[in-house]
Design a protein around this nucleic acid. Structure first.
Length: 208
DNA sequence: CATGGGATTGACT
DNA sequence: GTCAATCCCATGC
């Protein structure tokens, strides 16, 4: 047995490395809370995510490999962007090893940088309406379908670790939003203290 | 080839 | 609370 140093700093996996994404999709979803997402000059702190896995019916990859789901089944650390309800672009981070269909849906951000540009692209003023939903945040950051399959490591959309001095977020979990299949799974992760999460707000969610 | 259904949002009753 | 917008994709005839 080796001695465990006292006051060893908590090691957080680094989202600037592919290895961050090549893990359990649920661990990735949880660890993304508090990280920063950037595109161009705009950036926001991730405050809400959901995990999806090919073994459950709410995941697009549940049906197997098609043209649409190919990115999901591919290498980790890649963006999966798809059109939802014919209107919105939704951003996911592909997770788990190559060949396993799994991804984390980014659902809400706290605006950090380039906020004026976000207001312009969204056409709203309130900071809490800028990125408090998966379709809102892609519009705010100017993320469209053309970024599907781009790398999240060194690509146009990047994810940065939390500041070392930032306290770890208090995370609550609950059922995923807006799905009809596998609705019993509590694979939604929120920063319990953020006013920037999407609706429904998570008072009924469990603290972990 | 026709059809139905969304990992949503914003406007409206 | 209800509901339409809007289009890609998967499925079925």
């Amino acid at each position: 047995m080796s001695a465990v140093p006292e006051a060893m700093p908590a090691i957080r996996p680094d989202p600037r490395e592919i290895a961050f994404y090549a893990r359990s999709v649920h661990a990735v979803a949880r660890d993304l809370i508090g990280c920063a997402l950037s595109h161009g000059a705009s950036a926001g702190r991730i405050v809400e995510t959901e995990s999806y896995h090919e073994t459950e019916a709410a995941c697009h990859a549940f049906i197997g490999e098609t043209e649409r789901t190919r990115p999901l089944l591919g290498a980790p650390g890649v963006a999966y962007v798809y059109r939802s309800y014919g209107i919105h672009a939704l951003l996911n981070a592909v997770a788990e090893e190559d060949g396993v269909g799994a991804a984390v849906l980014i659902r809400a951000l706290e605006p950090l940088e380039g906020v004026a540009a976000m207001r312009t692209r969204r056409g709203v003023d309130s900071d809490e309406d800028l990125c408090s939903g998966p379709g809102k945040l892609t519009q705010a950051l100017g993320i469209g379908l053309e970024l599907n399959q781009t790398s999240l490591v060194g690509g146009p959309v990047e994810i940065h670790p939390p500041r070392a001095t930032a306290p770890p977020p208090r995370i609550v979990t609950g059922p995923r939003v807006g799905i009809t299949k596998a609705a019993e799974l509590e694979w939604r992760f929120c920063d319990a203290d953020s006013p920037h999460v999407s609706r429904p707000r998570p008072p009924a969610m469990r603290t972990r």
